[in-house]
Simulated scan of single mutants.
Amino acid sequence: MTSTPHRAGYVAVIGRPNVGKSTLTNALVGAKVSIVSPRPQTTRHRLLGIATFPEGQVLLVDTPGIHREQKRAMNRMMNRAARGSLEGVDAALLVVRAGQWDDEDTLAYDALRGAGLPVVLVVNQVDRIADKTKLLPYLAQITEGREFAGVHPISALKRSGLEALVKTVLALLPEQGPLYSEDEITDKSQRFLAGEMVREQLMRQLGEELPYATTVEIERFEVDGAMLRIGAVIWVERDGQKAIVIGKAGSRLREIGAKARVQMERLFGAKVFLETWVRVREGWSDDEAALRQLGYE
């Protein structure tokens, strides 16, 4: 009896904004390494999620959504990060939302085909389609004239359909041993992840436009015995935005900090003492030098 060879490799997770790429990455890794919110363009950085299975290791490159709008330096940098993630990967997952396909889905597909990668189509949120008889005609329509190494209807949130997806993905990866140890789940530091946990709460709790004018910088990250002491600066672009983030008598800032701290303690497995401040830096999101200084690649 021959044993199945171990496979490992890099897989880009690509798609337009807000189709569930980060939710899928987290579901496959089995831990929250990428922040999620209902807002488009929550993911701003390229992030590696390490999913280890008995048969192999899938290194998921979670990316910002590919989008046409490039009004600000931030958007241009996010698009570069998404397209740059295609270099050196073995395969790609094109994530779309069930029942939808628009110009930005086509843009993402064309980018993948141009890179010459095997592409697995992942149709997410199928649980939201009440009439399942509509699914087959929809799949036939979006796959016509397009080449895929596999098509998988899934629900990343409910973790359904993932087993078959993993099997397809592993078959596309080279035969080799694991590239990371079994207990590693991401290539990002705890410092980076702490900043993302605060930013996730900004995305979830603030109004329509304001989250896009905010970013987070971790000024302090110290291990104090069994406790982590973390100091986070929330940067905004105008004084009026600062007042909104702080809230009446500091209420919103306290809520953002409290919820972020709970997420950090869950991820880091340690007690966290978190302090937050809000500061103004005009035009940071349209200034490439400022973006690099704030940790954007």
Rank of each mutant, 00 (worst) to 15 (best):
S189Y: 11
A226P: 14
I218K: 02
A194L: 06
D224N: 15
E196D: 05
E200M: 07
E208Q: 07
L202H: 05
G195S: 01
R199K: 06
D187T: 14
G207H: 13
G195W: 02
D187I: 06
L228V: 15
D224Y: 07
L202R: 00
K188W: 12
M227D: 15
R191K: 15
Q201D: 01
R204W: 04
E209K: 00
M227R: 15
M203Q: 15
G195E: 01
A226L: 11
L210H: 01
G207V: 04
Q190F: 09
G207W: 04
L202K: 06
I218P: 05
M227T: 15
K188N: 10
K188S: 12
G225R: 04
L193Y: 10
R204M: 10
D187F: 12
M203P: 13
V198K: 05
G207Q: 08
D224H: 14
V198F: 05
E222K: 10
E196K: 00
E222A: 14
E200H: 06
Y212I: 13
L228Q: 13
A226H: 12
I218L: 01
D224A: 15
E217K: 07
K188H: 13
T214N: 09
K188M: 12
E219T: 08
A226E: 15
F192T: 07
F221N: 00
T186S: 13
M197W: 10
R191I: 08
G195F: 03
V198G: 06
E219I: 07
G207L: 08
Q201F: 03
S189G: 09
E196V: 03
L202A: 03
E209M: 00
E222R: 11
A213D: 08
T215N: 09
R191Q: 15
Q201K: 09
R220N: 13
E217F: 02
Q205G: 12
F192S: 11
T186P: 05
V216K: 00
E219V: 06
E200V: 06
L193M: 09
P211N: 12
D224W: 09
T186W: 04
T214K: 02
E222L: 14
S189W: 11
T215H: 07
E209R: 02
T214F: 07
Q190W: 10
I218F: 00
P211T: 08
E208N: 03
Y212G: 12
E219D: 14
E209F: 01
L202E: 02
V223D: 14
T215V: 11
R204I: 05
M203S: 13
E217S: 05
T214Q: 03
V198P: 07
E219K: 11
A194C: 08
E222W: 01
L210K: 01
R220Q: 14
V198R: 02
E208H: 03
E208L: 04
E196Y: 01
G225S: 06
V223S: 14
E209T: 00
G195Q: 00
Y212Q: 10
F192H: 10
T215E: 08
M197C: 10
A194V: 03
V223H: 10
K188R: 15
T186D: 06
V198W: 02
E196A: 01
Q201W: 00
G207T: 13
V223Q: 14
K188V: 09
R199P: 07
E208V: 08
E208C: 00
R191S: 13
G207F: 10
L206I: 04
L206N: 02
F221L: 00
E219M: 05
D187N: 14
E196F: 03
